[in-house]
Design a protein around this nucleic acid. Sequence first.
DNA 1: ACCTGAACACCGTTCAAGT
DNA 2: ACCTGAACACCGTTCAAGT
Lengths: 215, 215
Amino acid sequence: MGKRKIKTERRPEILDAALAIAAERGLDAVSMRTVAERVGVTPMALYGYFEGKDALLDALVGLLLSDLPAPDPSAPWEERLELIANGARDTARRHPAVFPLLFSRPSVTPAAVLVVDLLYQALLDAGVPEAHVPRVERLVSTFVLGFAVSEAGGRFSAGSADARSRRGGPEPGHLPAHHRLAAHLDAAVDWDAEFRADLEDLMWTIKAAAARGTG
Amino acid sequence: MGKRKIKTERRPEILDAALAIAAERGLDAVSMRTVAERVGVTPMALYGYFEGKDALLDALVGLLLSDLPAPDPSAPWEERLELIANGARDTARRHPAVFPLLFSRPSVTPAAVLVVDLLYQALLDAGVPEAHVPRVERLVSTFVLGFAVSEAGGRFSAGSADARSRRGGPEPGHLPAHHRLAAHLDAAVDWDAEFRADLEDLMWTIKAAAARGTG
DNA sequence: ACCTGAACACCGTTCAAGT
DNA sequence: ACCTGAACACCGTTCAAGT
C-alpha cells in the first residue's frame, strides 16, 4: 500500500484553518489550496499530515465529535442523554457548515464509538432490554443528528419561510392541511422549546421500550 | 436580475442522465461536463435548461420527492403515514447517492409542500392538537429522512462493521456497554424490521401527543 | 525531515459567436 | 431558438526536486 508516514504535529493547526474557512465562506470553500494558504504553506505540504482531502474532512468530523460533552457517569440516565443531545445541537450551531458531514461520513473514530457507548449505557440504565438497545440508540442518534443538521442547515426554516410566502398562492385548495394550520405556521418557532419537547417524546419512547422489556 | 429564459423540454432527459451518473459513479462524478457528455451536448447547452449546477441538483431532489407514493386520502392515518415513510426509504435505496441532498438542500418545491401537507393531514386525523402538528411533522420527517440517509449512506453499517472489528481491540475496558452488548452487536441487523419497529415507536409518540391534547 | 514547483486531468461559469 | 468554442479562475493529486 502506498501509505506514506503521516506527521501529526501541525494537524490541529490545519484543522483549525479548515474550520475557520468553513465558518467564513462555507464548506465548499474548504480546499487543499485555501487551507494550505491559511496555514502559510504549499498545498502539497498538507499531504504530509493527511492522506488527502477525504482524510482531512474525516478528521474534521472527529474533531466535532470529540467536542461533545462527557456526562458524569453517576448522573441519572435522562440527564446524561440530554447532555449529549444538547451538546450535539450546540456543536451543530457552532459549526453549521461542517456538521452535516456527520451524516455523510460514517465516523468510526474512537470519539464516535465512545459517544455511542455512553448512549448504550444510558439506555441500559433506563431499563431497555439488551436486544433492543442498539436499535433504540440508532433511533435516538438518528433523530438528534437529523434535527441538528436540519436546524443548522436551514431545512426547517426554509419550510416556514415558504409557508409565509405561500399566503394567497396560486392553488390554496390543494393544501388543505396547510390552510387549516395557517395560524400555527405563521408563528415564529422556538427551536429550543421544540428540541426540548422532542427529547421528552424520545424519553417516553425509551421508557415504553423499557416497560415492554420488564413487563 | 440576470435570469435568461429557461427551456424545459429536455429537462427530464438531463435529470435522467444526472441520476444515471450518480448511480454509476457517485454524486461527485455528477458535473455539468459529465452530464452534458451523456446527453450528447456541450456543457454550456445545459445552462439553457438550468440556471447552474445548484439548480440542477435542486431539480434532482424535486424529482425524488415527486417519486414518493400518494396515499389514498380515505385510508386510516397510520396507513397513510407508513406508506409515505416506506416510500421515502424505498427512494433512498433506489437513489442512495442522490438522496442525502434532501438534507442539505431545503426543498421548497410543490412536491415537497404536498408531502408535508399529507403528513399534516395524517397527524390531524390522528388527533394531534393543531398547535403541535408542525412540530410532530418535523419530528417524524426528520427521523424518517435521517434513517433513510443513514441506511443508504452506510452510517449504520459502518458502525456495526467497526463493532465487529473491535473484538479484542486495544482497550476493551473503556467501552463497557459495547462489551456487555457484544452478542447483539455481532448479530446481523434486519433493517426492514428495525424500520418497522421505529415507525411503531413513532406512532406511539403521535398517539401520546393526541391523548395529551384531548385529555 | 519537511516543504516546494511544475504539471496533469479535472471543475463551474462567462462571453461572444455560430447556424 | 438552440447550441458551440475558447477562455478564466478554480479543483485534488502525482512526481521529482530542493534544503
